[in-house]
Design a protein around this nucleic acid. Structure first.
Lengths: 121, 121
DNA sequence: TTATTATTTCGTTATTTGACGAATTATAAA
DNA sequence: TTTATAATTCGTCAAATAACGAAATAATAA
């Protein structure tokens, strides 16, 4: 039961839901996720570690940057099914749609010009 | 998003998971759920109200007793899918299996002989 | 009626959680 | 090497949560 609790707790926070949804179209570096969500980097980092611990995410390093992506290969049926559930139930959510638009803008900027504490409206 | 958060938060607590699983085979009165879980009646009542608020449960009154049952008719796809997820991922859980055995014993007793603060091992 | 029982509500307390900034680590750039 | 940047870890604080017991409510039983 602990594993199930861990997975569902991980996903039942609005910020972490937004992170998962923002990764539905591919990996992102931490600084882009931070720019998207307007929270302190340390806060985002903590959320990411909770999601990774629960097996929702995996990460890779690229120099200074760390990229996170959905761990769909996670043979863990529960994780995969939970992601499906989120996708289905949040794709029309207004916050998620706003995030998607903002993410589009964030992706147009290079990491270099983006990642100095810049706020994107 | 609030609705999704409410539903997933409701289900990501071990006691509430056990309550939901205990109801998979049909309705139970509060006193039987309380006897099953060894928690104070007020605690159980609070958990039940959280689950009802999130639309996992509905209740009916029978004299002194209040019965709760799963709200599968809850056209809410999210609720139904979440219950499926729980069922699949918890049916082999050791705590859930122990609960099922204990519930069997609890169901053999009448409400009257059960419901005076009796503890069932 | 009065007493008892089932459940809920309320107030309190301890624990968990989510947020932040400061300090730390690791890498890249000057 | 020194400086700057990306990310994490740590300590702190406020808010949320889960537990309890006491009191309130509602129904039955005596």
């Amino acid at each position: 039961m602990n594993k199930v609790v861990e997975v569902l707790k991980a996903v039942s926070d609005p910020t972490r839901m937004r992170i998962l949804m923002s990764l539905m179209n591919g990996e992102l570096c931490v600084c882009r996720i931070t720019a998207l969500l307007d929270l302190a980097p340390s806060t985002i980092s903590k959320h990411l570690s909770i999601l990774r611990q629960a097996k929702f995410l995996k990460s890779r390093k690229d120099g200074k940057w760390i990229y996170f992506e959905l761990n769909d290969s996670s043979q863990e049926n529960l994780v995969t099914k939970t992601l499906e559930l989120l996708r289905k139930n949040l794709e029309n959510d207004s916050i998620i749609k706003t995030d998607a638009v903002k993410l589009g803008r964030i992706l147009q900027k290079s990491r270099e010009e983006l990642c100095k504490n810049q706020k994107i409206k």
